[in-house]
C-alpha cells in the first residue's frame, strides 16, 4: 500500500507540468487574440448580427424593440421606386468609374515607370489625392464645380456650354461630376497597383518588340495591356468594392440630389437611417452586402486563379 501513493505522486510529478503546458497551449493563442476579438465582437460582429435581425423586424430604435415582420422590409424596398433608382444609380456610377479607373491609372503608371529624370517627383504628386481626407476632396471639388468656378469657366472656354453651369446641380451631369471626384481620388492608388504589375514584365519583351519595329503605342496595346491583365482584374474588383461604398463625395456635394440623380444605395440607406427607418435601412444594407460579397468572391476567385497560373 505504501508503494502506491509513492508511485502516483511520481506519476503526478511527471504529468503535472505536462497538464499545465497543455492548458497553456490551448490558452496562449486566445490570450493573443483576446483584446482584438473582444473589440471586433462587440463593435463589429454583434452589430452585423443585429442588422441581420433588424431587417426581419419592424425595429424602433428609440423604443429598442421590434416585431417580427418576415420579409416585409424587403417587399417594401423592392416595391420602392426610390430604392430601384438608388440601385440603378449605384450600377451607373460603377459603369462610369470602372473604365476610367482601369485605364487612366494605367497610363499614369506607364509614364512614371520610365527611367527618366523626375519621375519620382511625379509619382508623389500623383499620389497626393489618395492621402487627402475625403471630406476635403469633396469640398475642393464642390468649389471647383460651382457656378462661377474653374470647371464651369473651362467648359465655357472650350465651348461645351454657352453659360455658367454647375455640373453638380444639373440632374443629367451630377452623377458623372461626382464620379470624377472618385476617379481623381483613386488615380494614384491604382497607379501604384499597376506599377507593381509593370515591374514584373520582363524588359527583354519590349527590347525585342522595338527591334521588330513596334511603336510605343503598339507596344502599349500589344504587350503592356495583356501582360497587366492580373492588375486590371484586381483594379476592377477593387473599384467595384470601393464604388459600392462611396459616401462623402455624394453626401457633401449633392446630398443625393438633384431629384435623386446621385442617390446611390449607400445614400438611400443613410437617408432611411436618418428617418429612423432602421429596419428598411438594414434590408437595403443586406442588398449592399450581397453585392459586396459577390465582388469579393469574384476577387478571391480571380486572385486564386492568378496564383495557380503563376505556379503553373
Amino acid at each position: 500500500m505504501e508503494k502506491i501513493p509513492y508511485t502516483t505522486t511520481n506519476i503526478e510529478i511527471k504529468t503535472a507540468p505536462k497538464k499545465r503546458t497543455g492548458v497553456m497551449k490551448i490558452l496562449t493563442p486566445w490570450l493573443f487574440l483576446l483584446p482584438a476579438i473582444l473589440v471586433l465582437v462587440v463593435f463589429l460582429v454583434i452589430p452585423i448580427i443585429e442588422a441581420f435581425k433588424w431587417s426581419f423586424l419592424d425595429y424602433k430604435i428609440i423604443a429598442g424593440t421590434g416585431e417580427f415582420v418576415g420579409l416585409d422590409n424587403f417587399k417594401e424596398i423592392f416595391t420602392d421606386d426610390k430604392f430601384w433608382l438608388a440601385f440603378f444609380n449605384t450600377i451607373l456610377f460603377l459603369v462610369i468609374v470602372l473604365p476610367l479607373n482601369v485605364f487612366l491609372p494605367m497610363v499614369l503608371a506607364v509614364l512614371v515607370n520610365q527611367s527618366i529624370k523626375g519621375v519620382g517627383t511625379f509619382r508623389v504628386l500623383y499620389y497626393l489625392p489618395v492621402i487627402t481626407p475625403m471630406v476635403v476632396a469633396a469640398l475642393m471639388w464642390k468649389m471647383l464645380y460651382s457656378q462661377s468656378g474653374l470647371i464651369s469657366e473651362f467648359l465655357m472656354m472650350i465651348g461645351i456650354f454657352d453659360q455658367q453651369t454647375n455640373l453638380l446641380v444639373n440632374s443629367s451631369t451630377a452623377l458623372v461630376a461626382v464620379a470624377m471626384i472618385t476617379v481623381w481620388k483613386g488615380l494614384g492608388y491604382y497607379m501604384i497597383m499597376y506599377l507593381a504589375g509593370l515591374q514584373s514584365i520582363p524588359k527583354d519583351v519590349y527590347e525585342s518588340a522595338s527591334i521588330d519595329g513596334a511603336s510605343s503605342l503598339q507596344q502599349f496595346w500589344k504587350i503592356t495591356v495583356p501582360m497587366l491583365m492580373p492588375s486590371i482584374t484586381l483594379v476592377s474588383v477593387m473599384t467595384i468594392i470601393g464604388g459600392l461604398k462611396v459616401f462623402e463625395e455624394i453626401a457633401l456635394t449633392t446630398g443625393g440630389g438633384p431629384v435623386g440623380a446621385t442617390t446611390t444605395l449607400v445614400m438611400y440607406i443613410y437617408d432611411k437611417f436618418m428617418n429612423l427607418d432602421v429596419s428598411i435601412a438594414s434590408a437595403a444594407g443586406m442588398v449592399l452586402l450581397v453585392l459586396a460579397i459577390g465582388a469579393s468572391l469574384l476577387q478571391m476567385k480571380l486572385t486564386s486563379k492568378r496564383e495557380e497560373d503563376l505556379r503553373a
Binding site: L40, L44, I48, K245, G285, A292, S296
Partner: peptide, 12 residues
Amino acid sequence: TMMVPFQLYMAP
C-alpha cells in the same frame, strides 16, 4: 467581416 459594408451595421 472585411467584406461587410459599414452602412449595413451603422444603425445597430
